[in-house]
Write a protein that binds this DNA or RNA. Structure first.
Lengths: 267, 267
DNA sequence: GCATAATTGTCATGATCCTAACATTGAATG
DNA sequence: CATTCAATGTTAGGATCATGACAATTATGC
């Protein structure tokens, strides 16, 4: 009935299941998912033992012959998706695609970071010869695949929480770029308390982009309304448009009915 | 003989394989790998169509029933590699891994762009708490997954040929970063005509990195020796080490036998 | 030294995935 | 309207993966 741990924990285990697990975790953190047979060969045990080790561990899983980290980070590490994270996927996509529909060929646009913006990046009109300015790794990864598109990535120190970069030089660079449209995301949209996000380093970049853009467009699924996040970065009136999805409650729509920003509901 | 494109490009592709691929990439960027059946359901097509789409795309792959982002694991297992990257893969990996072995915990290192450097990025010692400076998208994609690693990406305008960025601001930023080691790649290594690459925009960044580093290490497979590319960026004597693979011809080894740079052959 | 228990390896079975081949749909063309 | 071709769906098979049972090995305690 009682499980295995009948020995005291050592501080540095060099043999046994615990040692294998830590080595596995290190290998995966270093270079991504690992083939099960490679893991078995590297640790000089059978695949079955790897499976058993992983089965009794948090944060690791065997899927499709690979041993991989669970927890699904935005860069594609790990296989397991949290239901929570995907719950509003349809809303994000609808809002992002509606927002992207307004883009005209030849424009220079700014794309924010966050989990909504990848959908916008993917929905950019093809063959439109755009110039895209961004500061997130996952956005760049999508946009850089497009033909006929100039991509400017604002670099700097990487922040894992939003897969984005920041530096003083990036602020200066962005300040010199004239934008046709800026597409911003937000974690909170509140009638009185304005628009906010969770990461403070994003604030200056968002603000500079809005200041330099002829049109500022806020893109967010309906769950972001009436919420407030720690980092305030703009008042509602600073936006020309808010694009969201159709699940926005009627009462909220009423409260946000104003000439500016114009509230657009994606079909 | 003529391929598919017999219609003029529309401004917004709402159907077709290209549109599905973009959406898939967005979903994966937003919330990690997807179950194949979920992807099929979300895009209202069969799993077979998802497989076919993904098979004809770079950067995505189907693994174990999931569709996931590739790029980051240069070991070839189930991953799509560009033709260029396939060539001399064993040599590139051997040289890169030998070069990475010299890295000590806590160091600040510069990693160049090119097809050899992803192997080095993947071979960085685990748990070493490094600071990594880079200017290529694919390098950043690998390094940003590592835990306990600070990543600084030098941004700017994207150049597709080497998946790298360049800007004046990046040069300034790099100029202010003190480096323990700079790992450089090259397309040509010639005894008299020095070290060269194909893209001119890489030249200043390489030179600044070398100037700021305590040790400059050239990493290249054996096929790069005795060749000259258009953009000269350094003399041989500017390097402390050259790390290459064991297929280097004996005659060439003799010619490059010098106290500096020290020629190291990976086993 | 022996008995016991934990650990690991091997095998077998069912489930799932991957690929190829063929059928079907739909759009463009004459 | 018929034809043609590309794109997609369906089916089936072999390959691979996942899981449980059991055997072999190693470690531990008396």
């Amino acid at each position: 009935m009682m499980p295995a741990q009948h020995r005291l924990d050592r501080s540095a285990p060099t043999t046994g299941a615990a040692a294998r697990l830590s080595r596995l975790a290190a290998m995966i953190a270093a270079s991504g998912p690992l083939r099960l047979r490679d893991a078995a060969a590297a640790l000089a045990v059978s695949e079955m033992t790897i499976r058993r080790d992983v089965a009794g561990a948090d944060g690791l899983a065997c899927l499709g012959g690979y041993v991989t980290a669970t927890g699904g980070r935005p860069d594609g590490t790990g296989y397991v998706l949290h239901q929570e994270e995907r719950a509003h996927m349809a809303g994000k996509r609808a809002a992002a695609e509606a927002a992207a529909a307004s883009i005209r060929p030849g424009e220079t646009i700014f794309i924010d970071c966050g989990t909504t913006m990848p959908f916008l990046a993917a929905a950019l009109p093809v063959g439109a010869k755009l110039t895209v300015v961004c500061y997130a790794l996952n956005i760049a990864a999508i946009v850089c695949r497009r033909a006929e598109t100039r991509v400017i990535l604002l670099g700097g120190l990487y922040h894992d929480s939003s897969a984005s970069f920041w530096s003083r030089e990036s602020e200066a660079m962005l300040g010199r770029i004239g934008l046709d449209r800026a597409f911003l995301s937000a974690g909170g949209i509140h009638r009185e308390r304005g628009v906010s996000c969770s990461n403070f380093h994003e604030v200056p970049l968002k603000q500079i982009a809005m200041a330099n853009a002829q049109e500022s467009c806020l893109v967010a699924d309906a769950t972001k309304f009436e919420r407030v996040m720690p980092a305030h970065f703009a008042d509602l009136s600073a936006f020309h448009r808010i694009v969201t999805d159709a699940t926005l409650a009627a009462s909220v729509r009423q409260r946000f009915a104003a000439p500016r920003p114009r509230l657009e509901i994606a079909a």
